[in-house]
Design a protein around this nucleic acid. Structure first.
Length: 882
RNA sequence: GGGGGCAUGGCGGAAGUGGUAGACGCAGCGCACUUAAAAUGCGCAGACGGCGACGUUGUGGGGGUUCAAGUCCCCCUGCCCCCA
């Protein structure tokens, strides 16, 4: 073999990337006047989308996996004749840039642009077929202008409002956070700081107005993973129940006229109420607290203010509270019960007040035990004796007792009847409650999209007129990272004339949550250069909904819920014509690196410092290390740099490895030996095709495709066998790329085809061999695009550079080639495999039974007795039951 | 506590509607080529027993349905995720 014919990805990949770019291979076909765009004109559109990255400046393996998966999908759809939109952009506002500015004094915009340039370059080395002409960056004024414009749409629709609220305050990042951005331990999703409660005036989007739609449309999203839909449903958390009024009474038991509204999902337990609890922040607490309880109540409120919601409401944490020295009347039975405040009731959920039913609610039960409040059982399990309440509350539905006129009713009947009685008696009504809160979008940070409103003493909140957009972020602001909105300190920017009355007014100084920017970027790609609108109705309706969205499961709630909300609002504004933005969603698994940890010291050890991976030991102490796979991160020294892998093996090997190693939704364990194996496979392909070319097997460019006429039956058995392997691969890979994607088995089918060709190509006739070679390279093209195009050219199919393998058509399997004359029949005796028989493929059941009974296997295992029963599965097996 | 998911060789993973378990690859072993090694090619390979033909056993554990169960049903164990 000559030296020049070795597979050297470093020499071919960049060349092909440049060639594709000059050919405009990844550009999005737009419908034009007839005759102007050959491929795109009649083609059906297909939109393949990756979740756009934050431009941190360095590409990691998680990105690579995400974009390679989307790229394969985009390339397959092009080969299938679709007009493909496959864009990329940058989620470019956010704290890292601002922190860099604070720490190093650099300009956040310049810092971000530099990172974008760096990451774009890294991305391009992967050979992704991205249409870079449609790139967007959320921090550029020509993009955020439209984020502001869309905010004004929300404002105009009454879906954006400003309100004083108790909010999550992140003391490290010095900003407020949305509920969705606080984790289960009450920590910020970004900084990890324990979130504090503060009362501030903030902007909200009224996502709760769409709670029902967001929930009810989930079943329509059949192309989404079940668990993402479940997570969203849980997050929205719709519960049906009733709001009931408890009248406040004075020391003599006379009504004071004040009412406490409670929300409950269990109106059937109303007769079991032994107290009512208010949230410590409830507005009536101050006025209802008796003189003697003043001191403990004040102290308690102060204590609770320092706790997170999660700590306060967890079922297993201790419940604390104090009575405030007032009583209320149970509207059903007239009983007087004490009024308490407690940490486990939250002000902003429901009405900020709950009725305490210790016998049938676990938290109430714990609370009642703690403070020796009475426990009144009113529900018993159907058909059973009374529950003894040893361990806790009986929270399931059952039958009512001790409930006056409702005794004997089931829980569900009682819920209806008690709610109806409340409505009739004017002391309550049925109500639906959501866990979902309105979306808090104000951030007291600089590097975000300015909220385009002006505060005027005379006119109130005035939207910035659309023609004055964008409200640009001022340059050269000194960022200190301490206290309040940085923009507020720039008086020259803040002071502005009111657009309404012309008097001096002040700009809003908060910026938007970056999730605002990412809630509509997929719409902008359809029409990225529009200067009159964020997108035209015709462009957005042509390309959307996104056919396939690919990204991490970590966005299951936040980004995906917000984007669905945006889509529904914009639909109602007439800006687009669909209900849901993403038809199919693929949540790819993490990329994990091999991780070594000293079990005694807890220290992570870099793989490079482990001398012998089969017996990993601490390089200093010699202790045996724990070995496992975990998500790649700097602190664990288990990351693998994509650039290093590409330098060594090329992008095609990296792509193939990532696709082959695990199914796309599962976590993937990075393994250098497996990468090496993948590289060997590509080398084998190279040698296979080179050997064929050396023998004079050459493909000439032609328009009619490279397949033999469907139905062709070559004369020789070996040709038939090779053809069967070729068309089996077509059928199998086509199926793996349809619906739910199985790239791992698709790659293994490519390996099988290559193995078959390695042993059979030499003996094959020229037409059959050429068909096999052409099919192999077209099937390979989406996965290893550089190698496929290089070999395609080396086989002579692309002499002028304009008949790339990526411009070919995805092959159709020929049923004739898949047909067999004989098949292997399995012979079972009593369900156990005992032998095999070659039989004619078209033999009927009776023939198969006879062949099986006449076989040696039958003779050996039936011992001369005729079987009691025979089951025949034509084409598969015969089961003899003695 | 509620909901969702997962469990298959030494490892990653394959196995339409129940129908030959372990495809494909990694690691391993043997052979060929080589002075040697690497690379490459060919072959073996779940476990147990047997020189062998072959037999037994085997998809986290237990039970069931069926001619036939990785696949369907019930119970249990362990792990992951979401909500509490």
């Amino acid at each position: 073999m000559t030296d020049s014919s070795r597979y050297r990805p470093q020499e071919i990949e960049e060349r092909w990337q440049q060639h594709w770019q000059s050919q405009g291979l990844a550009l999005t076909p737009e419908p034009g006047p007839s005759g102007t765009s050959g491929a795109g004109e009649a083609a059906e559109p297909y939109y393949a989308l990756s979740m756009f990255p934050y431009p941190s400046g360095s590409l990691h393996m998680g990105h690579v996996r995400n974009y390679v998966i989307t790229d394969v999908i985009a390339r397959v759809q092009r080969l299938r004749g679709r007009a493909v939109l496959h864009p990329m952009g940058w989620d470019a506002f956010g704290l890292p840039a601002e922190n860099a500015a604070i720490e190093r004094g650099v300009d956040p915009g310049a810092w971000t642009d530099q990172n974008i340039a760096q990451m774009r370059q890294q991305l391009q080395r992967l050979g992704l077929s991205i249409d870079w002409d449609r790139e967007v960056a959320t921090c550029h004024a020509d993009y955020y202008r439209w984020t502001q414009w869309l905010f004004l749409q929300f404002l105009d629709a009454g879906l954006a409002y400003r309100s004083e609220a108790t909010v999550n305050w992140d003391p490290i990042d010095q900003t407020v956070l949305a509920n969705e951005q606080v984790d289960g331990e009450g920590r910020s999703w970004r900084s990890g700081a324990l979130v504090e409660k503060r009362k501030l005036r903030q902007w909200f989007l009224k996502i709760t107005a769409y709670a029902d739609q967001l929930l009810d449309d989930l079943p329509k999203l059949e192309g989404w993973p079940e668990r993402v839909r479940t997570m969203q449903a849980n997050w929205i958390g719709r519960s049906r129940g009733a709001e009931l009024s408890f009248a406040v009474v004075d020391a003599d038991g006379a009504a004071t006229g004040q009412q406490i509204q409670v929300f409950t999902t269990r109106p059937d337990t109303l007769y079991g109420v032994s107290y009512v609890v208010l949230a410590p922040e409830h507005p009536l607490v101050a006025s209802l607290t008796s003189a003697e309880q003043q001191l403990p109540v004040t102290a308690f409120i102060d204590l609770v203010g320092r706790q997170s919601d999660q700590d306060r409401t967890a079922e297993d944490s201790p419940k604390r509270g104090v009575p405030i020295g007032a009583r209320v009347r149970n509207p059903a039975n007239g009983e007087l019960v004490p009024l308490w405040i407690a940490d486990y009731v939250l002000a902003d959920y429901g009405t900020g007040a709950v009725m305490g039913v210790p016998a049938h609610d676990q938290r109430d039960f714990v609370f009642a035990r703690q403070y020796e409040l009475p426990v009144q059982q009113v529900i018993i399990p159907e058909g059973s004796d009374e529950h003894a309440y040893e361990g806790g509350a009986w929270t399931a539905a059952g039958v009512l007792i001790h409930s006056g006129p409702y005794n004997g009713l089931s829980s569900s009947e009682a819920k209806q009847q008690i709610t109806a009685a409340a409505e009739a008696g004017g002391w309550g009504r049925g109500r639906v409650q959501y866990r979902l809160r309105d979306w808090l979008i104000s951030r007291q940070r600089y590097w975000g999209c300015p909220i385009p409103v002006i505060h005027c003493e005379a006119c109130g909140v005035v939207p910035v007129p659309a023609e004055q957009l964008p409200v640009e972020l001022p340059q050269g602001l000194e960022l200190a990272g301490k206290g309040g909105s940085p923009l507020a300190r720039l008086e020259s920017w803040v002071a502005v004339a009111c657009p309404c009355c012309g008097k001096p007014a002040r700009r809003e100084t908060d910026t938007m949550d970056t999730f605002m920017c990412s809630s509509w970027y997929y719409l902008r790609y359809s029409d990225p250069h529009n200067t009159a609108l964020p997108f035209s109705r015709s462009a957005v309706d042509r390309w959307l909904p996104v056919d396939q969205y690919v990204g991490g499961i970590e966005h299951a709630i936040l980004h995906l819920l917000y984007s669905r909300f945006f889509t529904k609002v914009l639909r109602d504004r007439g800006l687009l014509g669909f209900d849901e933005p993403f038809r199919h969603l693929l949540t790819q698994g993490m990329v994990q690196g091999i991780t070594y940890k000293n079990p005694h010291s807890g220290k992570y050890i870099a793989p490079a410092d482990v001398a012998d991976p089969s017996d990993p030991r601490d390089p200093i102490t010699g202790e045996v290390l724990d070995t496992f796979y975990e998500k790649m991160s700097k602190s664990k020294y288990n990351g693998v740099d994509p650039a290093v892998v590409i330098d060594r093996y090329g992008a095609d090997t990296a792509r193939m490895f990532i696709l082959f190693k695990a199914p796309p939704e599962k976590d993937l364990e990075w393994d250098d030996a497996d990468v090496e194996g993948q590289y060997r496979f590509l080398q084998r392909l190279w040698r296979l095709v080179e050997a064929a070319a050396d023998r004079g097997l050459l493909l000439s460019p032609r328009s009619g495709g490279f397949l033999l006429e469907p139905g062709s039956v070559p004369a020789s058995a070996s040709d038939q066998e090779l053809r069967r392997a070729v068309h089996t691969a077509i059928a199998a890979i086509s199926e793996d790329l349809d619906g739910d994607y199985q790239f791992n088995t698709a790659v293994s089918e490519l390996m099988k085809l290559s193995n078959a060709m390695a042993s059979q190509l030499e003996a094959a006739s020229e037409p059959v061999a050429l068909e096999a070679l052409a099919v192999l390279l077209v099937l390979l093209a989406p996965f290893a695009p550089h190698l496929a195009d290089e070999l395609w050219q080396r086989l002579g199919a692309n002499p002028d550079g304009d008949t790339s393998v990526h411009r070919q058509r995805w092959p159709q399997a020929d049923a004739t080639a898949l047909r067999r004359d004989t098949v292997t029949l399995v012979i079972q005796v009593k369900g156990k495999v005992r032998g095999q028989l070659e039989v004619p493929a078209d033999a009927d059941a009776a023939t198969l039974e006879q062949l099986a009974l006449a076989s040696e296997v039958a003779a050996k295992w039936l011992e001369g007795q005729p079987p009691r029963r025979v089951i025949v599965v034509p084409g598969k097996l015969v089961n003899l039951v003695p």
